[in-house]
C-alpha cells in the first residue's frame, strides 16, 4: 500500500484528500479539477444543482467510479488500480445510497452481518452482536429478523446506515439519503445522521436538507458543472453566498 508520510497517525492530517480530480464519461467531463480535503471528524455537506457532479465526486472517493485524472488519498492510501488499495479504501468507507440498496433476500440482521464476516473475517456470533448493537443505535433492533421489503422507507434507510456502520468505517458517505423518502420519514433518518455526527464520525453528505446542514456541517461545499464553486461554513453560505450561481441555486431550493 502507498502510505502517505504526511498523514500517519501521529499527526492527524486530512483523512480524505482529493487533488485535481478529473472524471469523464466518454467525451463529457463530469468532474473538472476538483480539490477537497476532509479532516478527521469533519462533516461536509455537498450541494449543487442536478448534474453538477456531487454523486460522481463521492462515488470516486470509494472507487465506485474510477477517476481519470488527479489523486484521491483516503486514510493514507492512494486509490490506484490495485485491488488491495481499492478494497482497503472501501472497507474504511461506508456509503449510504438514495435508493437504500439493501439485499432483498437477506434479513435486516443478515444484511448487516455479511460484509463484516466476509471482509473483516469476524465470527457469525460477533457479527450478529455487532449488527444488533448498531440496529439498536438506529432504533430498529426489533426488526432484525424481518426482510427489507417488510419495512418502511425510513426504516430501510436506517438499516442501510447500520449496515455501513457494521464495517466500522472511518468515513461515511451519504448520497441524498432522504430524497427517496416520504416527507414524514425524512426526520427519522436525519436524526440518525445527526446522532452519528455527534459521535464524531467523519461525514461527507450530498443533501439539500438545509436544516441538517446548519445543524451539523462544518463546511458546505457548493458544486456546479463539475467544479467546486464555493466553500463556506453553513451560516455564511446560506446567509451570504458569494457567487451568483450559489445565490441562484439557494433561491431555487427555498422555493
Amino acid at each position: 500500500m502507498h502510505r502517505e508520510t504526511s498523514s500517519n497517525a501521529a499527526q492527524p492530517g486530512p483523512i480524505v484528500v482529493v487533488e485535481s480530480l478529473v472524471k469523464r464519461f466518454g467525451a463529457f467531463t463530469a468532474l473538472n479539477d476538483v480539490n477537497l480535503r476532509v479532516g478527521i471528524g469533519e462533516k461536509i455537506v455537498l450541494c449543487g444543482p442536478s448534474g453538477s457532479g456531487k454523486s460522481t465526486l463521492i462515488r470516486c472517493i470509494n472507487h465506485i467510479e474510477k477517476h481519470d485524472g488527479g489523486r484521491i488519498i483516503v486514510d493514507g492510501v492512494e486509490l490506484s488500480n490495485r485491488l488491495a488499495d481499492i478494497n482497503s479504501v472501501r472497507s474504511e468507507t461506508g456509503m449510504v445510497f438514495q435508493s437504500f440498496n439493501l439485499f432483498p433476500h437477506l434479513t435486516v440482521a443478515e444484511n448487516c452481518m455479511l460484509a463484516p464476516m466476509k471482509v473483516r473475517g469476524i465470527s457469525q456470533a460477533e457479527a450478529r452482536d455487532r449488527a444488533l448493537g448498531l440496529l439498536r443505535k438506529v432504533r430498529i433492533q426489533d426488526q432484525a429478523d424481518k426482510y427489507p421489503a417488510q419495512l418502511s422507507g425510513g426504516q430501510q434507510q436506517r438499516v442501510a446506515i447500520a449496515r455501513a456502520l457494521c464495517m466500522q468505517p472511518k468515513i461515511m458517505l451519504f448520497d441524498e439519503p432522504t430524497s427517496a423518502l416520504d416527507p414524514e420519514m425524512v426526520k427519522e433518518v436525519l436524526d440518525t445522521m445527526v446522532e452519528l455526527a455527534r459521535d464524531g464520525m467523519t461525514m461527507v453528505c450530498v443533501t439539500h436538507e438545509m436544516g441538517f446542514a446548519r445543524e451539523v456541517a462544518d463546511r458546505v461545499v457548493f458544486m456546479d458543472r463539475g467544479s467546486i464553486v464555493e466553500e463556506a461554513d453553513p451560516e455564511t453560505f446560506f446567509r451570504a453566498p458569494r457567487t451568483e450561481r450559489a445565490k441562484g441555486f439557494l433561491n431555487q431550493i427555498i422555493h
Binding site: I64, L114, A115
Partner: peptide, 26 residues
C-alpha cells in the same frame, strides 16, 4: 439491479462473495 452491485462494492465485498451471496441467490 445495479444498486446491488454498488452496495457490494461499497462494502468491499469480493467479486466471489458478491456473486455467491448476493447476485446468484437473487
Amino acid at each position: 439491479n445495479k444498486g446491488q452491485f454498488e452496495a457490494c462494492q461499497a462494502l468491499a465485498l469480493s467479486t466471489y462473495d458478491t456473486y455467491r451471496h448476493i447476485v446468484l441467490p437473487q
